[in-house]
């Protein structure tokens, strides 16, 4: 079991999008952009490993060669201009290379233009609200809902609940604290723009498979985009301390094929036309109360 886990951790870059036991490295992710942080992570890691091997190697050679117990006599020199210029210049060149790579990746991330869909994300203590704003150029009316920690996780996570976190499962997947009552559903192969804000305190919306996190700040509307390549379930968590249940407001994104998504959206629109009140007004002062009175789902 552990061996399999380790093998997966080492070679399973694209096998799973959600965390698995003994995982050692970041995942490539599931969106068209998520390889950027993954590649930068790997490149900079290897740069650091190489520098580390050289520097620590030199240090260990020094520690073995120049020990007093081996009769080493201290030399008098304490300066070498050529050497100093070299080890100032080489890091500069390495840094310029890394900065070049990072700049390209960051610029593409910052470009939210040309999106085909807009979803508004609002962080509350301690749940997320998703409001569908538009899809394929058409405004969406009254599709929005709260997304909370699922009941099984919530029961299990109580102090001294006596319940086993390993027993919280969806199918074969262990979803303790990473599952919600109602996930965000989005289509694949679509440039989705997220507009992200906070209703009370600062939260941070993070799904590792999408490659980024962005703070949900009251009074500020942030924007980011994603374009998911494969249908699947992608899990994440709030990543900014937001009070006592900060650890208990997960994020689940379900990516469906465009046809399935269109069907899901039509169902939601039909249902909301009958029963749901309009989305809660987002205002720092009243949002918390408004959120509390909005029925789930």
């Amino acid at each position: 079991m552990a061996t399999a886990g380790l093998a997966l951790a080492t070679f399973g870059g694209a096998v799973q999008a959600n965390p698995h036991p003994w995982q050692l490295n970041m995942e490539r992710g599931a969106s068209t952009w998520s390889h950027v942080p993954y590649d930068l992570n790997n490149i900079s890691l290897w740069v650091c490993v190489v520098i580390g091997v050289l520097v620590f190697g030199a240090m260990f050679v020094a520690m073995f060669r120049f020990r007093k117990s081996r009769g080493a006599v201290a030399e008098k020199w304490a300066h070498n201009t050529v050497l100093e210029v070299v080890w100032t210049t080489i890091p500069v060149l390495i840094l310029i290379t890394l900065a070049y790579l990072a700049t390209g990746g960051l610029t593409s991330w910052a470009d939210t233009t040309g999106s085909q869909m807009t979803v508004k994300v609002t962080g509350y203590q301690w749940k997320w609200r998703y409001d569908y704003v538009s899809y394929m150029g058409k405004p969406i009316d009254k599709v929005g809902f709260m997304s909370r920690l699922d009941k099984q996780s919530d029961d299990t996570r109580q102090l001294d609940s006596g319940m086993d976190p390993y027993a919280v499962k969806v199918g074969d997947e262990q979803t303790y604290l990473l599952n919600v009552d109602k996930p965000l559903v989005v289509p694949v192969d679509t440039k989705i723009r997220f507009i992200i804000t906070g209703g009370d305190v600062i939260h941070s919306w993070w799904v590792p498979a999408l490659g980024w996190k962005l703070d949900a700040i009251p009074g500020i509307v942030n924007a980011a985009w994603t374009n998911i390549k494969e249908p699947g379930t992608y899990r994440g968590q709030c990543a900014e301390l937001c009070g006592q249940d900060h650890g208990f407001m997960p994020i689940v994104v379900v990516a469906k094929s465009k046809a399935d998504f269109a069907k899901w959206l039509a169902e939601q629109e039909a249902a909301s036309g009958k029963s749901l009140p309009p989305p809660a007004p987002i205002d720092a002062g009243t949002a918390a109360t408004a959120a509390a009175t909005t029925p789930p789902g």
Partner: peptide
């Protein structure tokens, strides 16, 4: 993918 400042976490 484990956030900081959380008292409890997924079994992974």
């Amino acid at each position: 993918g484990m956030p900081r400042r959380i008292p409890d976490y997924n079994v992974a």
